[in-house]
């Protein structure tokens, strides 16, 4: 569970987040929208433990994030344009990152690559990937270790329609496995289809929360649970 409690942050004299309060329960997807520069990405960085608070706190499963505190859960993150080792294949990049914690097998990695629409056997190095392929690889890395917390910034950037459908499937599966998920996007349609709640951020403030404007959550209409083995 993610609990953001009166979190404020100033960077280089500019107040980027102001007394943000937000709770994301396990198995819940919160969509965050707002104009450019509103603080959406900074909020994700804060939840990821990449920036620390000037006031307030962030708790992940009851543990307060801060300097010297190891990140308490398995986190999947996609922020800005994903970049990897240029001369390695997608599979090799994934394997390298997965080797740090050693919680998934090569077969697991190949499965997730197929799920995001990439070929595990593709020998092309990363620097030859299109923008859409890079985004897909970023999603693969974010989801490959079955994270408990998923933070995605503009996850459907550069994705075609198939890619968007793939993304929806991935996120619904993670939700079904109990992950706490926060997505930021300019794409109201995507946010509306997958989010349980929407939060609007402006000038660093979370100014309202509301249910998404749609008939149903696409995740509810899909069968949940279990892992794609």
């Amino acid at each position: 569970m993610i609990e953001v409690s009166s979190f404020s942050k100033t960077i280089r004299g500019h107040k980027v987040l102001r007394e943000i309060n937000l709770t994301v329960r396990p198995g819940e997807i919160v969509g965050v929208k707002g104009p450019n520069g509103s603080g959406k990405t900074m909020l994700l960085r804060a939840i990821a433990g990449l920036v620390y608070s000037d006031a307030g706190a962030i708790f992940i499963n009851g543990i307060k994030l801060g300097p010297g505190v190891p990140y308490p859960v398995n986190l999947g993150l996609l922020i800005e344009t994903p970049s990897f080792l240029a001369h390695y294949t997608g599979l090799d990049n994934c394997r390298l990152l997965a080797s740090i914690r050693n919680t998934v097998t090569v077969e697991d990695i190949k499965t997730i690559l197929r799920q995001v629409g990439l070929d595990p056997q593709d020998r092309r190095p990363f620097h030859k990937y299109s923008l859409g392929m890079k985004q897909r690889l970023g999603l693969a890395v974010a989801f490959m270790e079955r994270p408990d917390v998923v933070l995605l910034d503009e996850p459907t950037n550069a994705l075609d329609q198939d890619g968007v459908e793939m993304f929806k499937s991935l996120i619904c599966k993670a939700r079904g496995c109990g992950a706490s998920i926060v997505i930021t996007s300019h794409d109201d349609k995507v946010l509306g289809m997958v989010s349980d709640r929407m939060a609007l951020v402006e000038e660093g403030r979370l100014i309202e929360e509301k249910p998404p404007m749609r008939d149903s959550n696409i995740c509810c209409s899909q069968s949940m649970g279990g892992r794609d083995e």
Partner: peptide, 19 residues
């Protein structure tokens, strides 16, 4: 180059401890 950027941050988060 690779201590920063998305790749560096990904490896940092998977390491869990900055130190």
């Amino acid at each position: 180059k690779y201590g920063k950027g998305y790749f560096g941050v990904s490896s940092l988060l998977k390491s869990k401890k900055r130190s």
